[in-house]
C-alpha cells in the first residue's frame, strides 16, 4: 500500500508543481498545523489503540498468541464465525443482486420506492435490536415460532438464528454497492445482447454481471467483514454456548469476562488482522475500478 501511495504522490509531483493533477498542494508552514491536527487525531483515535492491542496480544510472546488461538474453543469459534459469514454473504449476494437488479431495471416492480427505502433499515437498526427481533419472532409466542416448530428447526440459540441475524445486519451492502453501477452502465448493453439473440439469463451472466463486477466484489467483502465482526445481534440470539454457538467475537466477550486477557487479545488481534486483509482487498478493487 505504501508503494501505491508513493506512486500516487509521484504522479502528483510530476504534475504541476504547486497544484497537481489531483489538485493537492504541499502545505505551507502555517497549514501544517491543520494537517497535524488531522494526523494527531487519527493517530490517537485509530492507530494508537491498534498498536496497543498488538502489543497486548503479543506481550506473552508469539507462542502464547498462537496457543491461545489453537484451543478447541477458539478453533470452533473461528470456524463458526467463518461459516456464518460465508452463509450470510452467500445469501446476501444472491438476493442482493436480484434485489438491486429489480430496483434499478424493473420499472413495474411493485412498491419500488418503498422497498428501496426499506433496504437501508438494517443500517439504522441497532444490532442488539436486530437480535432481539428474532427473539420476539421465534420466541415462545412469536409469529414465526409455529412455523419453525413445524419444520423441526431450532432457530434461537442455534445456527439458523445466528445466520438470520448476521444476514440481517449485513444485508444492504451488496445492494447499495451494485445499484449505482447498474444505473451507470445502463440498459443498452443488455439490449444489445437481446438483439443478438441472448436470453435474459445469458445477457445477465455475460453482460450485466461483468459490468457490475467491481461493485459486487466490494459489496461482498463489506458484507463478509461486517458478518465476521458482528457481536450484538449474535450475542442476543446465540445464547453463547461454548464450543457450539460461540463465534469469535463472543469468544472475546467471554474471555474478557473471565479475565483471560491473552486469549481475548489474541482473538481480537486475529479479527483485526483479518479485517486488514479485507481492507487491503477492498482498496485494491477500488483502485482497479478507478483505473478503468
Amino acid at each position: 500500500m505504501a508503494e501505491t501511495a508513493r506512486s500516487l504522490d509521484g504522479e502528483v509531483a510530476s504534475g504541476i508543481a504547486e497544484t497537481g493533477a489531483e489538485g493537492r498542494a504541499r502545505p505551507r508552514p502555517g497549514e501544517w498545523v491543520v494537517v497535524g491536527i488531522a494526523l494527531a487525531y487519527a493517530i490517537l483515535l485509530l492507530f494508537a489503540p491498534l498498536a496497543a492491542l498488538a502489543r497486548g496480544a503479543l506481550s506473552r510472546g508469539v507462542r502464547a498468541f498462537f496457543d491461545a488461538l489453537s484451543t478447541p474453543d477458539a478453533l470452533s469459534a473461528i470456524k463458526l464465525t467463518f461459516l456464518l459469514a460465508l452463509g450470510a454473504t452467500a445469501i446476501n449476494t444472491v438476493f442482493g443482486v436480484a434485489a438491486a437488479w429489480l430496483l434499478v431495471r424493473d420499472r413495474r416492480f411493485p412498491g419500488r420506492r418503498f422497498v428501496n427505502g426499506m433496504v437501508d433499515l438494517p443500517f439504522a437498526v441497532s444490532p442488539v435490536i436486530a437480535g432481539f427481533m428474532l427473539i420476539v419472532l421465534f420466541g415462545r409466542t412469536g409469529w414465526l415460532a409455529p412455523l419453525a416448530r413445524a419444520a423441526g428447526v431450532k432457530v434461537l440459540f442455534a445456527f439458523p438464528g445466528m445466520l438470520i441475524a448476521t444476514t440481517f445486519i449485513s444485508l444492504p451492502f451488496v445492494i447499495r454497492e451494485i445499484m449505482p453501477l447498474l444505473g451507470e452502465i445502463g440498459e443498452e448493453e443488455e439490449n444489445a445482447a437481446y438483439t443478438l439473440g441472448a436470453g435474459r439469463w445469458r445477457a445477465f451472466w455475460s453482460v450485466t454481471l461483468p459490468g457490475i463486477r467491481s461493485g459486487l466484489e466490494y459489496g461482498v467483502l463489506l458484507t463478509f467483514a461486517r458478518a465476521v465482526g458482528e457481536v450484538g445481534a449474535v450475542l442476543v440470539v446465540s445464547g453463547s454456548i461454548v464450543g457450539l454457538t460461540e463465534t469469535a467475537t463472543l469468544f472475546i466477550f467471554r474471555a474478557l469476562d473471565e479475565r483471560n486477557a491473552v486469549a481475548g487479545y489474541a482473538m481480537a488481534m486475529l479479527l483485526a488482522l483479518s479485517s486488514f486483509v479485507l481492507l487491503t482487498a477492498m482498496e485494491w478493487i477500488r483502485r482497479r475500478a478507478r483505473s478503468r
Binding site: E189, N191, A192, T195, A198
Partner: peptide, 19 residues
C-alpha cells in the same frame, strides 16, 4: 421478444460489451 427477431441493432452510444 427481441431475441427471436434476428435483427441487427446498432446503438447510438455503440453499447459494445466493454469487458
Amino acid at each position: 421478444p427481441p431475441q427471436n427477431r434476428n435483427t441487427g441493432f446498432v446503438f447510438q452510444n455503440y453499447s459494445l460489451f466493454r469487458h
